[in-house]
Design a protein around this nucleic acid. Structure first.
Lengths: 159, 159
DNA sequence: GCTTTCTTACTCGGATACCTACTGTCCGAGTGGAATAGG
DNA sequence: CCTATTCCACTCGGACAGTAGGTATCCGAGTAAGAAAGC
C-alpha cells in the first residue's frame, strides 16, 4: 500500500500558497521550481485540488493557483482525498460469499463482514486524525523563518 | 492508495485456520476452494504470513498451513503488515530541501518535516486500531453458525 | 492625451506514452504416508 | 504377523509472464496584459 507522491506535493504547495496569499495567484511553473518537481505532472495534482474546491485557478498571463479558502478552513484530509481519491484503501470483495465455504444460507450475510468492519474502523481513525489538522496547523509547526524565506525567494524570482 | 487484495485473503484464511485448529494443517488448495481464489497466488500470501511468524507450514502429502500461535495472540496489524510490507504508506521525500525554495540554511531542516509528522501520526492511529484487534476478536464478531459451517464444509471435502 | 483594438506571451486543462508494482501462473525440491516385500 | 524399504502422490516454495494504475510528458484552448493605432 503506497500513497501517491502527489499527496506530499499537494500539501507542500498548499502551505506555500497559504504563505503567498498576498502574491497570488502562483503559477505551476513557479511552484514546481520551488520544490524541484516536474511542472506538467504537478499541474495534474493541482487540478485535482481545484476540482475538490481546495484551490482556485486563474487562466491568463498572470494566472496561477491560490487557496480557495483560508488555511484554517482546509483540512489535511481534504487535500489527501482530493489527490488519492475518496475510496477506502481496503475494499471488501465479499470472498466469504464466493467459495465453496459459502453454502446456501445467505441470511447470515445480511450483517456486514467483521473483517471489513475492522479495517474500515481503522481507516476511519486515520481519517479523523487527518481531519483534525488544517493547513494553518501545518503553517504553525513550520520553522519561524520558513514563511519569510518563501516570500523572499518568490520576490527574487520575479526579478 | 489501494490495499492489496492479499490482505483480505490472508485475514479470512487466518480466521478459517483458527476454526479448523483440530483439523490442521490445511492445504492452500482447500483454503483457495473455500473462498474461490486462485490457489497459486493465495499461496504467495500465505508464504508471507509464514515468514512473519503468523502461520507455520508443513510440507508433505498431508501438509498445509496452521496458525503458529493461538488466535488471541495474533493481531490484525501483524497480518496486514506481513502482506503489505512494513513500510509506511506515506513516504517523505524531503522535497522541502530540493527545489529553489530551499536555500542555503540547512539548520531548520534538522527538525522533521511537519507534513511528514502529521501523516505518520495518522498512520500510527491506523496501526494502533489494527493492533487492538486480534483474530479471536474477529472470530467473535462472526455469526454463531459460521464456525460450525466451516468445519462441516471441511469434513465434506474430506470425503 | 485618452480610448479602443489587436497582438502576443503565458496560463490552465485534458489527451497521450512509459514504467513500476500488484496480480496471476507454472514448475521443481522435498516430505510423509502407504503399499510392498522380506523376515 | 511384524518390520524395513521403496515408491509415489501431494505439499510448499520460489522463479517466470500479464496487466492495471501511478508517473511523466506534450500540445491545444483560453485569457489578460500590454503595445499600438486611431480619435
Amino acid at each position: 500500500m503506497r500513497m501517491s507522491e502527489g499527496v506530499e506535493w499537494g500539501l507542500h504547495c498548499c502551505v506555500t500558497l497559504a504563505w503567498l496569499t498576498e502574491e497570488a495567484p502562483i503559477s505551476t511553473a513557479k511552484l514546481a521550481a520551488a520544490f524541484g518537481l516536474p511542472p506538467a505532472y504537478l499541474n495534474k495534482s493541482l487540478q485535482a485540488l481545484v476540482r475538490a474546491g481546495v484551490l482556485s485557478s486563474m487562466p491568463g498571463i498572470r494566472g496561477g493557483f491560490q487557496l480557495a479558502r483560508p488555511p484554517s478552513k482546509v483540512t489535511v484530509l481534504e487535500v489527501v482525498l482530493a489527490i488519492e481519491g475518496p475510496e477506502h484503501s481496503f475494499r471488501c470483495t465479499e470472498i466469504r460469499q464466493k467459495g465453496g465455504g459459502a453454502t446456501q444460507h445467505s441470511r447470515e450475510f445480511l450483517q456486514p463482514c467483521g473483517i471489513a468492519v475492522t479495517m474500515h474502523r481503522a481507516e476511519l481513525a486515520w481519517r479523523q486524525e487527518l481531519a483534525k489538522k488544517t493547513l494553518e496547523d501545518l503553517m504553525e509547526t513550520a520553522p519561524e523563518t520558513a514563511a519569510e524565506k518563501v516570500r523572499c525567494w518568490y520576490r527574487q524570482l520575479q526579478k
